[in-house]
Amino acid sequence: MKKIKAAVVAIAAIAGMTVAVAPAQAASNCTAGGGGIYICDYGVKDHALPGGEKEQFLVGTDYAVWTRWTINKQWTGWVSLGMPDPLGKARGASSINVTDEQVQGNFRTGIYLRNSNGALVGKIRPGLGQGWWAWDFPNCC
């Protein structure tokens, strides 16, 4: 009887390890320009800025949202926009929605996505060259 219990416990432990390891094995990493490493399945989101400049967003291997942009057609390094724990991790760049609007003469950009909890979260940059506001739960999109 003890041998049967031990075998059942061993099989359950191995099955549990297999389930825990499978998601990590399924995610493969890709390299973006500038040395950015991201989860391949999520891709890279391109975004056009005024004056012909560009911006990109991706989900890094830490599941945070990262961005880079061009200045005089030269790419900056990657900068983390983070994803605070209470809001959950980013689900994927394929779910990032980027919006632009003119607000009091400023080119305002918003990014919105579903986090790992399934909630819609967003982050706003009130104008070019300005910092991003904190992640929040928007009443839009």
Results as ranks from 00 to 15, higher is better:
38 Y>L: 01
64 A>M: 12
38 Y>D: 01
87 L>S: 09
56 Q>T: 06
125 R>C: 09
63 Y>R: 14
40 C>S: 09
75 W>C: 05
106 N>M: 10
69 W>Q: 07
77 G>F: 10
26 A>K: 12
25 Q>T: 10
24 A>C: 10
36 G>Y: 04
96 I>A: 03
129 G>H: 06
81 L>N: 04
27 A>M: 14
30 C>G: 04
100 D>L: 10
73 K>L: 11
33 G>P: 12
29 N>G: 08
70 T>A: 05
85 D>R: 13
42 Y>H: 14
116 S>M: 01
14 I>F: 07
40 C>V: 06
85 D>H: 11
127 G>A: 15
113 L>K: 02
21 V>H: 09
96 I>S: 00
22 A>F: 10
39 I>W: 10
23 P>V: 00
25 Q>P: 04
37 I>Q: 13
130 Q>W: 12
35 G>K: 01
15 A>D: 12
49 L>I: 08
128 L>P: 06
77 G>M: 11
114 R>H: 11
88 G>E: 00
43 G>W: 06
79 V>W: 11
37 I>Y: 13
107 F>E: 15
33 G>Y: 13
38 Y>V: 03
23 P>E: 01
97 N>I: 13
82 G>Y: 07
56 Q>A: 03
42 Y>Q: 13
123 K>Y: 07
125 R>H: 04
128 L>E: 07
74 Q>G: 12
73 K>T: 15
60 G>A: 07
72 N>V: 08
89 K>H: 08
62 D>I: 02
37 I>T: 15
62 D>W: 05
56 Q>C: 02
46 D>Y: 13
90 A>V: 03
32 A>G: 01
49 L>Y: 05
100 D>A: 14
103 V>D: 07
120 L>M: 13
130 Q>V: 09
54 K>H: 10
128 L>I: 07
39 I>S: 08
